[in-house]
Computed example of a mutant assay.
Amino acid sequence: MNALPMVLVLAAGLNSCIGNMLLKWSRASLPADAGLADKLFSMGFIGGLAFYGVNVVLFAKALDSMEVSIAYPILAGSGFAMLMVASHYVFGEPFPPYKWIGLTLVLAGIVFLARGG
């Protein structure tokens, strides 16, 4: 199997992670009483949308030569795993043992799916 589709899926997962982090940052950086326009036109929100857009383009390209039943779980799982780690380091979100166990299971699932493709 050509490695490029897998690289594209993982890059799409990274873009999804960055998009989510920017959305969280956009909410955390605004005052609680910020108006809808302030929320929609904040740099974090616009940046998050941009990264989501790149995510879709990369994923669509990967689907040219990869089964969606394999690609999507890898996209979702890798994005989830990256997001758990990034949110811990950037936002100080807790990372208790049950999250470590879940992350391990997600990564094991990604390995099995990737080998099955």
Rank of each mutant, 00 (worst) to 15 (best):
Y89C: 07
G35S: 09
K39P: 08
V9T: 01
F51T: 01
L58P: 09
C17E: 05
L103S: 09
V68E: 01
A50I: 15
E67S: 14
G35K: 07
S87I: 06
P5I: 08
Y98D: 10
V56F: 15
E67W: 12
F95V: 11
G116F: 14
L36K: 14
L58H: 09
S26N: 08
L8A: 00
G79S: 00
G48S: 01
L22P: 03
A86K: 13
C17K: 11
P96A: 06
I70S: 14
G109H: 00
L14C: 11
G79Y: 01
A60P: 12
S16D: 15
F59M: 06
L22G: 08
A34P: 03
G19R: 01
A32V: 10
V111E: 04
M6S: 12
F59W: 00
A86Y: 10
A50P: 04
S29E: 02
G48H: 05
G77P: 05
V56Q: 12
Y52I: 07
L103V: 04
A86W: 12
L105M: 00
I70G: 12
L107P: 01
A81N: 07
K24V: 10
G102M: 07
K99G: 08
S16W: 15
D64E: 13
L58C: 08
L63E: 07
L63F: 03
